[in-house]
């Protein structure tokens, strides 16, 4: 049997990412072997399988890859935007674009990240750049 030994840190990628968010940092992993960026946080590189994923600060910039408006009645909070943003590092993430009417979010729009909170959990949102 091969042991994991010192390959992996005591805290998993998930905790490390959340700890970063709580400090106000949006961090992203980059594979030391193939140089691809990985998001959401992983244990192994999804491109090459390497365990050598190194944290770095995300640029926090990206482009709207797709967007939609979820229709809710006014009493249920009204319409909401839902979007997938392609980070400038490459990976995509689900998010919501804030501070804009849902229908005004367009595919290809440049956006920048900000950290918000929902139900006590820090989350990454974006607004128009």
């Amino acid at each position: 049997m091969a042991e994991t030994g010192t390959t992996f840190a005591a805290d998993g990628a998930e905790k490390q990412f959340r700890d970063g968010l709580n400090r106000g940092e949006f961090n992203i992993q980059q594979c030391a072997s193939c140089k691809k960026h990985v998001f959401y946080p992983r244990t192994l590189c999804t491109n090459c399988g390497s365990p050598k994923l190194v944290w770095k600060r995300a640029a926090g910039t990206g482009t709207v890859y797709s967007t939609s408006t979820e229709r809710y009645k006014p009493e249920a909070g009204g319409d909401k935007n839902i979007a997938v943003v392609q980070l400038d590092e490459g990976p995509r993430m689900l998010t919501r674009i804030t501070d804009i009417a849902p229908a005004d979010v367009k595919i290809g729009m440049r956006v920048t990240a900000h950290i918000g909170e929902a139900d006590g959990i820090k989350l990454i949102y974006f607004r128009k750049a």
Binding site: Y40, S66, K80, I82, A83, R96, I107, A118
Partner: peptide
């Protein structure tokens, strides 16, 4: 993780994102 926390309207929302793209 990284999806549910945003409380998206699912499953319809994911297919809608695909359709719009």
């Amino acid at each position: 993780m990284y999806q549910s926390e945003y409380k998206p309207m699912l499953p319809v929302g994911s297919y809608a994102l695909v359709a719009n793209r």
